[in-house]
């Protein structure tokens, strides 16, 4: 069974095509790495997958629900199965790590509790467990703006974990991290698939990080999928062909 199935996804910004009939599928427990040169359309792909941007054409099925057709309440419902880890973490700076992870629980908690920031004990326990999984339980009560970049990104992963989304997308989650922090973030993402059966799609700039992390590699170039292979077939030659300058 596929978790996310994308067919013919096409999008243009102001008449300039950015995604051209992209096909992509990912199954539960699988990690797909999306690689490609700057401007290839990776971020646009993630924004269309999450409906932060509505694609011009194509179908986008999340566990059989067509997201492209979903609106308002049905979109909100469908989105609960989607989590996105952003390159810039996007944590609320003045909330603690724990309170940021609890963002993942917002959909299930009554509004008055959200306004007072009084979450049910079960949600707090879940949030703590998620922080523990990314190794940040000791920082639960530290404000987000006091954490290092790698720690902030792991809080963002814990936030997605707490939302119980079954499909996790990550847009260059390690682009602004040092090698050690990057490794810890990728390990956390890998474990989402291996230990929790989530479907993970992650874009990366550094092709050398793909081996040992992903199961499958999708190469994007000028908005087209030019490569979709098991990680074992993604060798240096394939990588340099993908990144080679056109012409």
């Amino acid at each position: 069974m596929t978790a996310l199935a994308v067919r013919g996804l096409t999008h243009a910004y102001g008449g300039v095509p950015v995604l051209r009939a992209v096909d992509l599928s990912v199954s539960p427990g699988e990690v797909v790495a999306v690689v490609g040169p700057s401007g290839a359309g990776k971020t646009t792909l993630f924004r269309c997958l999450t409906q932060l941007v509505r694609a011009d054409a194509g179908t986008l099925e999340l566990f059989g629900t067509d997201l492209q057709q979903a609106q308002g309440k049905s979109l909100r419902l469908a989105r609960r199965d989607l989590g996105l880890v952003f390159q810039s973490y996007n944590l609320v700076r003045r909330l603690t790590a724990m309170q940021n992870v609890l963002v993942g629980r917002l959909a299930d908690v009554p509004a008055w509790r959200v306004l007072l920031r009084r979450f049910p004990a079960a949600d707090e326990a879940l949030a703590a467990a998620c922080l523990d999984q990314v190794g940040l339980l000791p920082y639960a009560h530290t404000r987000a703006d006091r954490l290092s970049g790698g720690q902030q990104q792991r809080v963002a992963i814990a936030r997605v974990l707490a939302s119980r989304a079954r499909v996790v997308l990550a847009d260059e989650p390690v682009a602004s991290l040092d090698p050690a922090s990057a490794a810890s973030v990728l390990t956390a993402l890998r474990s989402l698939a291996t230990d929790h059966g989530k479907a993970v799609v992650c874009s990366l700039h550094q092709v050398d990080l793909v081996a040992g992390f992903a199961d499958r590699v999708v190469g994007l170039r000028d908005g087209r999928v030019v490569l979709d292979v098991p990680v074992s077939q993604f060798d240096p030659a394939a990588a340099s062909a993908l990144y080679a300058r056109a012409g």
Partner: peptide, 18 residues
């Protein structure tokens, strides 16, 4: 942060206030 919260499918009131 607001975009991240909206992806959880929670209502506008909850995501923006929190």
């Amino acid at each position: 942060p607001l975009e991240a919260a909206e992806l959880t499918g929670a209502s506008r009131l909850k995501t923006s206030s929190y």
